[in-house]
């Protein structure tokens, strides 16, 4: 189920603006990879190229290759819609569908493409996805209530349940806890720990304690100055990155943040 991601010579553009330059990296299956770096260095931009969400922005495109399971998702004839079904995404702000109930939110991705599923299969999927997102106990009695009625942290876990319901291989998370309180954040961090048994997870975070808590490997992005492209400076085992990084920039960034 979980797959490795192999990125080669990836350049990412917004029209003429080169936002991220020459990324080469291999992301291990069944692991959590954290991406850190200063604001504007291209973490979100890079993350969004891994499921081809980057190109929904007018004028945005990427060159190079991103291989999942050995096949380039930017290859000719690859439908981005299919890529996004295999690579799920959780956003910075919880975004359940406001007109749908909790249950329908979980099933939203499954019901796309006019896929028909039986009532009992749907029930099972709703339960297993919500359990997978550690939300089942809290919402099992109000599955037909609107998803917007949940707290922010619950909404974010609902979004995670929605993402895992389509059984992706990879899950991308862009600062999934930045809009949440510490308790909800811990709940999601625990969840990420459990989820890496089934999925390859890439998470962007500004919180370095969080990166060190949840991730196996950490990548550091940096930018030389405004208007310059961002680079992946270093990526290594999380422990090594936070104790003994190879690169001076990484060390400066990490020590600067930790005081």
């Amino acid at each position: 189920m979980a797959q490795a991601i192999n990125v080669e010579d990836l350049n990412i553009y917004y029209s003429e603006f080169l936002a991220v330059e020459n990324v080469n990296v291999t992301i291990q299956p069944r692991s959590v990879t954290a991406l850190i770096g200063p604001s504007g260095c291209g973490k979100s931009t890079f993350l969004r190229t891994l499921n081809r969400m980057h190109e929904v922005i007018p004028g945005a495109y990427a060159t190079g290759s991103v291989e999942i399971e050995g096949a380039n998702i930017y290859g000719s004839g690859v439908d981005p819609v299919n890529v996004r079904r295999r690579v799920g995404m959780v956003f910075q702000k919880p975004n359940p569908f406001p007109t749908m109930s909790i249950r329908d939110n979980v099933l939203a991705g499954v019901k796309l493409n006019n896929q028909r599923i039986s009532r009992s299969t749907a029930d099972e999927l709703v339960e297993s996805s919500l359990r997978g997102a550690n939300l089942w106990e809290e919402v099992k009695d109000r599955l037909d209530k609107p998803g917007m009625g949940l707290s922010g942290g619950q909404q974010q876990r609902l979004c995670i349940a929605r993402a895992i319901a389509v059984k992706p291989e990879v899950i991308l998370m862009d600062e999934p806890c930045s809009a949440l309180d510490p308790i909800s954040t811990l709940a999601i961090e625990d969840l990420i720990h459990e989820m890496k048994q089934d999925f390859t997870i890439v998470i962007v975070t500004h919180n370095m304690q969080q990166a060190s808590r949840v991730s196996d490997r950490t990548g550091f992005f940096n930018i030389a100055g405004t208007g310059k492209p961002g680079h992946l400076i270093e990526i290594d085992e999380t422990e090594k990155m936070f104790t003994n990084p190879e690169n001076k920039q990484t060390e400066d960034y990490i020590s600067g943040r930790f005081g």
Binding site: N51, N82, G109
Partner: peptide, 27 residues
């Protein structure tokens, strides 16, 4: 229509038409 809603649908693997059906029209 909130951008974030449309992206939620797209990221689930919705086609443009499905995005309109699940997000834009209800909104």
């Amino acid at each position: 229509t909130p951008r974030l809603q449309e992206e939620a649908a797209l990221a689930l693997g919705a086609t443009r038409f499905e995005t309109i059906r699940t997000v834009v029209l209800p909104f």
